[in-house]
């Protein structure tokens, strides 16, 4: 086990600056959201909702009031498009590490030693899992620190269950897309794997949004992993359905399995 652990340690060591910096930024953003929510007078949240463009109101549906509340704004970081995009970019960068190692020739050095090929994939999955956990943990820590330090006494805090569900749903979404990136990185160049995963994610997001606004697209919406990412429902207090977690988990497991298969059969050449 020494070899695989060394491999994981090296990858974590090399990614630590990126992970710590991103995690701290996300945590700081959560604190900032609490600060913003605290600065809004409770009676003004409804006015704020009225300022939203019609299509955003349509997208949010009955969740408008919940999202445009103290708790909703505090939780915004878990579904803000920019944050989700940044997290997906981070996870894609980490998940495509095997392709990078093959291209740079680093894989030659390590696989020419008595180390099984599958450890490259297992290491990457571990790296992605640790990074995902770290990101959502730091986000949650930022939320609770912000609430503890900045929330007004009369503000209604989002429940730990709600924050936990949002973090879990976001984490599963990250794992799902990391598996797609890893499966592609097991067979393609890093640039191809990253770009393809990014485009697939964008297409899936657009499909989900389109289906929410245009009923004709609804029959195809199940194809999008974003369909199983339901932060607006969670903010309204709905419990996270187990099926959503299972679907995202199944996609992740399928992607990881494909990655193992492809990497075990490919030629390591750069």
């Amino acid at each position: 086990m020494t070899g695989p652990i060394l491999l994981l340690s090296l990858s974590l060591k090399r990614a630590r600056t990126l992970l710590v910096a991103t995690g701290l930024l996300l945590a700081a953003f959560q604190v900032l959201l609490v600060l913003i929510a605290s600065s809004i007078h409770p009676s003004k949240f409804e006015d704020l909702a009225a300022l939203l463009p019609p299509f955003v109101r349509a997208l949010l549906g009955p969740a408008v009031a919940s999202v445009m509340s103290f708790g909703g704004i505090v939780c915004l970081g878990y579904f803000d498009l920019a944050i989700v995009a940044a997290l997906l970019a981070l996870i894609i960068a980490l998940a495509t590490l095997p392709a990078s190692e093959v291209e740079t020739g680093f894989a030659d050095l390590i696989l020419a030693r008595p180390l099984r090929r599958h450890w490259i994939i297992t290491r990457t999955i571990a790296l992605v899992l640790i990074s995902t956990l770290m990101m959502v943990a730091l986000m949650m820590a930022g939320t609770w620190v912000g609430l503890a330090m900045l929330a007004p006494d009369d503000a209604q805090w989002p429940s730990p269950m709600m924050i936990g569900s949002l973090a879990l749903n976001l984490g599963m979404l990250m794992l799902c897309w990391s598996s797609v990136a890893l499966a592609l990185a097991a067979a393609c160049r890093r640039s191809v794997a990253s770009a393809t995963t990014g485009l697939l994610a964008l297409a899936a997001l657009l499909l989900d949004l389109t289906a929410r606004l245009w009923p004709a697209a609804e029959p195809f919406a199940w194809l999008s992993p974003f369909r199983y990412f339901i932060p607006f429902d969670l903010v309204m207090g709905t419990a996270l359905p187990v099926e959503n977690i299972l679907v995202l988990w199944a996609i992740a497991m399928s992607g990881f399995t494909v990655a193992y298969l492809l990497f075990s059969q490919r030629d390591i050449s750069h």
């Binding site: 020494t2 070899g3 190692e101 680093f106 020419a112």
Partner: peptide, 24 residues
């Protein structure tokens, strides 16, 4: 190998220790 694919952010000692470690 003909071309050494080494990470530029590692030191020489780190590379040697790492490769010795995974070589068992």
């Amino acid at each position: 190998p003909g071309e050494l694919g080494l990470y530029p952010d590692l030191t020489g000692f780190e590379v040697l220790d790492f490769l010795a470690g995974i070589s068992r």
